[in-house]
Amino acid sequence: MSFLPDPALRRLRDAFDAPDLSDSRYTLLEPIGRGGMGAVYAVHDAALDRRVALKVIDAGAHAESRIVARLEHPGIVPVHDSGTLPDGRPYYVMKLVEGEPLHRVPLEMPEALRVFLRVCDAIAFAHSRGIVHRDLKPENIMIGRFGEVLVLDWGVAAEAHAGAPRAGTPGFQAPEPEVTAASDIYSLGMLLRELVPEPRPPLRSIIERATQQRPEARYESAADLARDVTAFLDGTRVQAHRESLGEAAARLARKHQLWIVLIATYLVLRTILFFWFRR
């Protein structure tokens, strides 16, 4: 056999990884990406004549489809079908979300925080069903074409009460060896740090509280974390932050900025009129 150049190797690698769907209702369209514990492809569903996403699951992630199927939430991609490929690898089929992962979407601060709140909402829901995600990071959050925010890649997700072993991506991973819901809170804190690289003091306090080394020192729930971020957005008091008098005044001034500007404008114009008539 002659030499295989790099492009041929790349195509062979894709052929090696591609699922064999010849005896199924799906036709392979193109690879979408490879996440923790599996590769995702765009496929055509002949039965319903629509494009869907098919994830081929690697070893150790057999429970993924069942876990995701348990999580019916607007922030979590719904599962339509599951099965096994002829080579024995399990797969599941889910809604195909047209959009970009969070790390490729430039977001200004208030918008970034609103996206973050939607992520918190999905994670709080998963926690309420006893599931921890274990691999929260910007690459696993999809912003859809119509602004929908979806938490993807539940490949390493586990039962929250089981104290599952550590998994996920360094930099977003909590330090404790056994993963619980608090570990997702830590990852949410790291995600917030990534979204807002230069946070103002109250937001910095939120991040610090979420990313405490000891799990019990973090927010008790994703909902609590979301509550503090909402307070920051609304200009009300952030629980995690002890603010000085100056900070409180600045916060109130920011919150009522337009009122202050309007009244000041009125006073300036009124003063001009006053002196005009005094001439």
């Binding site: 062979l12 052929a15 090696f16 591609a18 064999d20 769907l21 010849s22 002829p86 080579d87």
Partner: peptide, 16 residues
């Protein structure tokens, strides 16, 4: 063509 290619890819995967 797709059937032949699917066969070859499936066998290639098995051989690798």
């Amino acid at each position: 063509v797709t059937n032949h290619l699917a066969f070859a890819r499936r066998e290639f995967r098995r051989l690798v």
